[in-house]
Design a binder for these strands. Sequence first.
DNA 1: ACCTCAATTCATCATATGATGAATTGAATT
DNA 2: AATTCAATTCATCATATGATGAATTGAGGT
Lengths: 120, 120
Amino acid sequence: MAKSKEGMCEILCVNTKAVKEISARMASEDAISVMAETFALLGDPTRLRVVQALSHGELCVCDLAAMLGVGRTAVSNHLRLLRGMRLVSYRREGKLAYYSLADEHIATLLNKCLEHVEER
Amino acid sequence: MAKSKEGMCEILCVNTKAVKEISARMASEDAISVMAETFALLGDPTRLRVVQALSHGELCVCDLAAMLGVGRTAVSNHLRLLRGMRLVSYRREGKLAYYSLADEHIATLLNKCLEHVEER
DNA sequence: ACCTCAATTCATCATATGATGAATTGAATT
DNA sequence: AATTCAATTCATCATATGATGAATTGAGGT
Protein backbone atom coordinates (compact mmCIF):
# COMPACT_ATOMS: atom_id res chain seq x y z
CA MET A 1 0.00 0.00 0.00
CA ALA A 2 2.42 2.61 -1.05
CA LYS A 3 0.37 5.48 0.22
CA SER A 4 1.70 8.88 -0.49
CA LYS A 5 4.00 9.90 2.30
CA GLU A 6 4.37 13.56 1.87
CA GLY A 7 1.86 12.89 -0.87
CA MET A 8 0.71 16.32 -1.94
CA CYS A 9 -2.08 16.17 -4.41
CA GLU A 10 -0.44 19.05 -6.21
CA ILE A 11 1.65 16.59 -8.13
CA LEU A 12 0.24 13.11 -7.82
CA CYS A 13 -2.23 11.87 -5.35
CA VAL A 14 -2.29 8.15 -5.18
CA ASN A 15 -0.57 5.80 -7.43
CA THR A 16 2.26 7.08 -9.55
CA LYS A 17 2.65 3.73 -11.17
CA ALA A 18 -0.92 3.44 -12.37
CA VAL A 19 -0.82 6.96 -13.68
CA LYS A 20 2.38 6.31 -15.57
CA GLU A 21 1.07 3.11 -17.09
CA ILE A 22 -2.15 4.70 -18.17
CA SER A 23 -0.40 7.79 -19.43
CA ALA A 24 1.73 5.60 -21.64
CA ARG A 25 -1.35 4.07 -23.20
CA MET A 26 -3.12 7.32 -23.99
CA ALA A 27 -3.64 8.21 -27.62
CA SER A 28 -1.58 11.02 -29.09
CA GLU A 29 -2.66 14.60 -28.70
CA ASP A 30 -3.43 14.75 -32.39
CA ALA A 31 -5.56 11.65 -32.30
CA ILE A 32 -7.45 12.88 -29.27
CA SER A 33 -8.01 16.19 -30.94
CA VAL A 34 -9.42 14.71 -34.13
CA MET A 35 -11.52 12.20 -32.21
CA ALA A 36 -13.00 14.96 -30.09
CA GLU A 37 -13.78 17.04 -33.15
CA THR A 38 -15.45 14.06 -34.77
CA PHE A 39 -17.53 13.29 -31.71
CA ALA A 40 -18.41 16.94 -31.34
CA LEU A 41 -19.75 16.99 -34.88
CA LEU A 42 -22.02 14.08 -34.03
CA GLY A 43 -22.97 15.73 -30.76
CA ASP A 44 -25.51 18.13 -32.18
CA PRO A 45 -29.01 16.67 -32.66
CA THR A 46 -29.68 18.36 -35.98
CA ARG A 47 -26.29 17.43 -37.38
CA LEU A 48 -26.65 13.90 -36.10
CA ARG A 49 -29.97 13.61 -37.90
CA VAL A 50 -28.30 14.85 -41.06
CA VAL A 51 -25.64 12.19 -40.74
CA GLN A 52 -28.13 9.48 -39.95
CA ALA A 53 -30.27 10.39 -42.92
CA LEU A 54 -27.25 10.30 -45.19
CA SER A 55 -26.29 6.91 -43.82
CA HIS A 56 -29.38 5.59 -45.59
CA GLY A 57 -28.75 7.25 -48.92
CA GLU A 58 -27.69 10.42 -50.62
CA LEU A 59 -29.88 13.50 -50.40
CA CYS A 60 -29.76 17.08 -51.58
CA VAL A 61 -29.68 20.01 -49.21
CA CYS A 62 -33.24 20.89 -49.95
CA ASP A 63 -34.60 17.45 -49.17
CA LEU A 64 -32.60 17.30 -45.98
CA ALA A 65 -33.99 20.65 -44.91
CA ALA A 66 -37.52 19.57 -45.70
CA MET A 67 -37.36 16.21 -44.01
CA LEU A 68 -35.64 17.53 -40.90
CA GLY A 69 -37.75 20.64 -40.62
CA VAL A 70 -34.89 23.11 -40.52
CA GLY A 71 -33.78 25.88 -42.83
CA ARG A 72 -31.54 25.30 -45.82
CA THR A 73 -29.01 27.64 -44.32
CA ALA A 74 -28.73 25.55 -41.19
CA VAL A 75 -28.37 22.36 -43.19
CA SER A 76 -25.79 23.93 -45.41
CA ASN A 77 -23.76 25.10 -42.47
CA HIS A 78 -23.85 21.69 -40.86
CA LEU A 79 -22.77 20.09 -44.10
CA ARG A 80 -19.91 22.52 -44.40
CA LEU A 81 -18.65 21.45 -40.97
CA LEU A 82 -19.08 17.79 -41.82
CA ARG A 83 -17.23 18.34 -45.07
CA GLY A 84 -14.43 19.99 -43.18
CA MET A 85 -13.83 16.78 -41.28
CA ARG A 86 -14.38 14.69 -44.41
CA LEU A 87 -17.38 12.94 -42.95
CA VAL A 88 -19.51 13.66 -45.98
CA SER A 89 -18.84 14.04 -49.67
CA TYR A 90 -21.02 15.50 -52.36
CA ARG A 91 -21.61 15.57 -56.04
CA ARG A 92 -23.25 18.26 -58.08
CA GLU A 93 -26.09 17.52 -60.40
CA GLY A 94 -27.21 20.71 -62.04
CA LYS A 95 -28.32 23.08 -59.37
CA LEU A 96 -28.52 20.39 -56.77
CA ALA A 97 -25.83 19.17 -54.44
CA TYR A 98 -26.21 15.57 -53.39
CA TYR A 99 -24.51 14.67 -50.14
CA SER A 100 -23.59 11.26 -48.82
CA LEU A 101 -21.43 9.78 -46.11
CA ALA A 102 -17.79 9.82 -47.07
CA ASP A 103 -16.86 7.01 -44.80
CA GLU A 104 -18.17 3.66 -43.67
CA HIS A 105 -16.72 4.22 -40.23
CA ILE A 106 -19.15 6.95 -39.43
CA ALA A 107 -22.16 4.72 -40.00
CA THR A 108 -20.47 2.11 -37.80
CA LEU A 109 -19.99 4.71 -35.11
CA LEU A 110 -23.66 5.65 -35.26
CA ASN A 111 -24.73 2.04 -35.02
CA LYS A 112 -22.48 1.33 -32.06
CA CYS A 113 -23.87 4.32 -30.29
CA LEU A 114 -27.41 3.28 -31.12
CA GLU A 115 -26.71 -0.15 -29.67
CA HIS A 116 -25.46 1.48 -26.54
CA VAL A 117 -28.51 3.67 -26.25
CA GLU A 118 -30.92 0.82 -26.81
CA GLU A 119 -29.30 -1.37 -24.20
CA ARG A 120 -28.77 1.04 -21.42
CA MET B 1 -47.59 12.43 -56.52
CA ALA B 2 -44.93 14.40 -58.30
CA LYS B 3 -45.10 17.46 -56.14
CA SER B 4 -42.32 19.12 -58.08
CA LYS B 5 -44.83 20.60 -60.44
CA GLU B 6 -44.67 24.16 -59.35
CA GLY B 7 -42.04 22.59 -57.21
CA MET B 8 -41.59 24.84 -54.25
CA CYS B 9 -38.60 23.85 -52.29
CA GLU B 10 -40.61 24.95 -49.31
CA ILE B 11 -42.03 21.48 -49.08
CA LEU B 12 -39.90 18.98 -50.95
CA CYS B 13 -37.36 19.54 -53.57
CA VAL B 14 -36.50 16.41 -55.39
CA ASN B 15 -37.52 12.94 -54.57
CA THR B 16 -40.48 12.44 -52.31
CA LYS B 17 -40.01 8.71 -52.44
CA ALA B 18 -36.42 8.71 -51.26
CA VAL B 19 -37.26 11.13 -48.49
CA LYS B 20 -40.13 8.99 -47.29
CA GLU B 21 -38.07 5.85 -47.32
CA ILE B 22 -35.24 7.43 -45.43
CA SER B 23 -37.56 9.15 -43.02
CA ALA B 24 -39.05 5.77 -42.16
CA ARG B 25 -35.62 4.44 -41.28
CA MET B 26 -34.58 7.27 -39.00
CA ALA B 27 -34.09 6.51 -35.34
CA SER B 28 -36.63 7.81 -32.87
CA GLU B 29 -36.38 11.31 -31.53
CA ASP B 30 -35.47 9.94 -28.13
CA ALA B 31 -32.71 7.77 -29.49
CA ILE B 32 -31.30 10.63 -31.53
CA SER B 33 -31.40 12.84 -28.50
CA VAL B 34 -29.53 10.41 -26.27
CA MET B 35 -27.04 9.58 -28.98
CA ALA B 36 -26.32 13.26 -29.54
CA GLU B 37 -25.84 13.83 -25.82
CA THR B 38 -23.48 10.89 -25.66
CA PHE B 39 -21.44 12.08 -28.61
CA ALA B 40 -21.41 15.59 -27.22
CA LEU B 41 -19.93 14.31 -23.99
CA LEU B 42 -17.13 12.69 -25.94
CA GLY B 43 -16.74 15.81 -28.05
CA ASP B 44 -14.72 17.80 -25.56
CA PRO B 45 -10.96 17.09 -25.62
CA THR B 46 -10.49 17.17 -21.87
CA ARG B 47 -13.51 15.01 -21.21
CA LEU B 48 -12.46 12.62 -23.95
CA ARG B 49 -9.07 12.27 -22.31
CA VAL B 50 -10.78 11.52 -19.02
CA VAL B 51 -12.81 8.80 -20.66
CA GLN B 52 -9.84 7.38 -22.47
CA ALA B 53 -7.78 7.29 -19.32
CA LEU B 54 -10.58 5.50 -17.48
CA SER B 55 -10.84 2.99 -20.30
CA HIS B 56 -7.45 1.74 -19.17
CA GLY B 57 -8.23 1.51 -15.50
CA GLU B 58 -9.86 3.24 -12.60
CA LEU B 59 -8.43 6.47 -11.28
CA CYS B 60 -9.26 9.00 -8.59
CA VAL B 61 -10.12 12.60 -9.37
CA CYS B 62 -6.80 13.80 -8.12
CA ASP B 63 -4.76 11.49 -10.33
CA LEU B 64 -6.86 12.37 -13.34
CA ALA B 65 -6.31 16.06 -12.68
CA ALA B 66 -2.59 15.54 -12.29
CA MET B 67 -2.09 13.38 -15.34
CA LEU B 68 -4.24 15.55 -17.58
CA GLY B 69 -2.87 18.83 -16.32
CA VAL B 70 -6.20 20.39 -15.41
CA GLY B 71 -7.76 21.47 -12.14
CA ARG B 72 -9.64 19.11 -9.88
CA THR B 73 -12.71 21.25 -10.26
CA ALA B 74 -12.72 20.82 -14.01
CA VAL B 75 -12.24 17.07 -13.71
CA SER B 76 -14.99 16.84 -11.15
CA ASN B 77 -17.39 18.75 -13.33
CA HIS B 78 -16.64 16.56 -16.31
CA LEU B 79 -17.14 13.45 -14.22
CA ARG B 80 -20.46 14.79 -13.01
CA LEU B 81 -21.64 15.16 -16.59
CA LEU B 82 -20.37 11.70 -17.48
CA ARG B 83 -22.11 10.27 -14.44
CA GLY B 84 -25.31 11.97 -15.52
CA MET B 85 -25.30 9.92 -18.70
CA ARG B 86 -24.11 6.81 -16.85
CA LEU B 87 -20.91 6.64 -18.79
CA VAL B 88 -18.81 6.34 -15.67
CA SER B 89 -19.34 4.86 -12.24
CA TYR B 90 -17.38 5.39 -9.07
CA ARG B 91 -16.61 3.91 -5.73
CA ARG B 92 -15.47 5.67 -2.61
CA GLU B 93 -12.41 4.60 -0.75
CA GLY B 94 -11.91 6.84 2.21
CA LYS B 95 -11.50 10.34 0.99
CA LEU B 96 -10.87 9.25 -2.54
CA ALA B 97 -13.37 8.66 -5.31
CA TYR B 98 -12.29 6.11 -7.87
CA TYR B 99 -13.92 6.42 -11.23
CA SER B 100 -14.15 3.87 -14.01
CA LEU B 101 -16.09 3.36 -17.21
CA ALA B 102 -19.60 2.14 -16.53
CA ASP B 103 -20.03 0.55 -19.89
CA GLU B 104 -18.12 -1.57 -22.36
CA HIS B 105 -19.79 0.19 -25.24
CA ILE B 106 -18.05 3.43 -24.57
CA ALA B 107 -14.61 1.92 -24.92
CA THR B 108 -15.79 0.30 -28.14
CA LEU B 109 -16.98 3.65 -29.38
CA LEU B 110 -13.61 5.20 -28.62
CA ASN B 111 -11.79 2.44 -30.42
CA LYS B 112 -13.97 2.67 -33.50
CA CYS B 113 -13.37 6.38 -33.62
CA LEU B 114 -9.66 5.88 -33.19
CA GLU B 115 -9.66 3.41 -36.08
CA HIS B 116 -11.41 5.98 -38.18
CA VAL B 117 -8.94 8.68 -37.27
CA GLU B 118 -5.94 6.49 -37.96
CA GLU B 119 -7.19 5.45 -41.37
CA ARG B 120 -8.37 8.70 -42.74
C1' DA C 1 -13.45 17.89 19.12
C1' DC C 2 -10.39 19.71 15.82
C1' DC C 3 -7.87 19.67 11.67
C1' DT C 4 -6.63 18.05 7.05
C1' DC C 5 -7.55 17.24 2.52
C1' DA C 6 -10.02 15.05 -1.55
C1' DA C 7 -14.13 15.99 -3.80
C1' DT C 8 -18.05 18.61 -4.91
C1' DT C 9 -20.85 22.59 -5.56
C1' DC C 10 -21.47 27.37 -6.65
C1' DA C 11 -20.79 31.77 -9.01
C1' DT C 12 -18.53 34.07 -12.60
C1' DC C 13 -16.46 34.92 -16.95
C1' DA C 14 -14.90 34.37 -21.61
C1' DT C 15 -15.62 31.86 -25.51
C1' DA C 16 -17.94 28.70 -28.74
C1' DT C 17 -21.88 27.36 -31.15
C1' DG C 18 -26.35 26.94 -33.65
C1' DA C 19 -30.22 29.31 -35.86
C1' DT C 20 -31.79 32.89 -38.73
C1' DG C 21 -32.38 36.29 -42.59
C1' DA C 22 -30.04 38.99 -46.16
C1' DA C 23 -26.94 38.96 -49.74
C1' DT C 24 -24.14 36.35 -53.05
C1' DT C 25 -22.76 32.62 -56.13
C1' DG C 26 -23.34 29.31 -59.76
C1' DA C 27 -25.77 26.45 -62.95
C1' DA C 28 -29.61 25.68 -66.06
C1' DT C 29 -33.45 27.08 -68.78
C1' DT C 30 -35.68 30.53 -71.60
C1' DA D 1 -28.10 37.96 -71.18
C1' DA D 2 -31.75 37.67 -68.25
C1' DT D 3 -34.20 34.97 -65.06
C1' DT D 4 -34.83 31.38 -61.75
C1' DC D 5 -33.62 28.82 -57.93
C1' DA D 6 -30.62 25.65 -55.06
C1' DA D 7 -26.76 26.33 -52.39
C1' DT D 8 -23.49 28.97 -49.98
C1' DT D 9 -21.58 32.73 -47.43
C1' DC D 10 -21.98 36.43 -44.23
C1' DA D 11 -23.44 39.04 -40.18
C1' DT D 12 -25.98 38.91 -36.08
C1' DC D 13 -27.97 37.22 -31.94
C1' DA D 14 -29.14 34.27 -28.13
C1' DT D 15 -27.69 30.48 -25.77
C1' DA D 16 -24.58 26.81 -24.23
C1' DT D 17 -20.30 25.43 -22.47
C1' DG D 18 -15.73 24.91 -20.21
C1' DA D 19 -12.33 26.83 -16.98
C1' DT D 20 -11.39 28.94 -12.72
C1' DG D 21 -11.38 30.28 -7.72
C1' DA D 22 -14.02 30.48 -3.43
C1' DA D 23 -16.87 28.16 -0.39
C1' DT D 24 -18.87 23.74 1.24
C1' DT D 25 -19.14 18.84 2.26
C1' DG D 26 -17.54 14.52 4.03
C1' DA D 27 -14.39 11.01 5.60
C1' DG D 28 -10.05 10.14 8.24
C1' DG D 29 -6.21 11.18 11.18
C1' DT D 30 -4.38 13.34 15.38
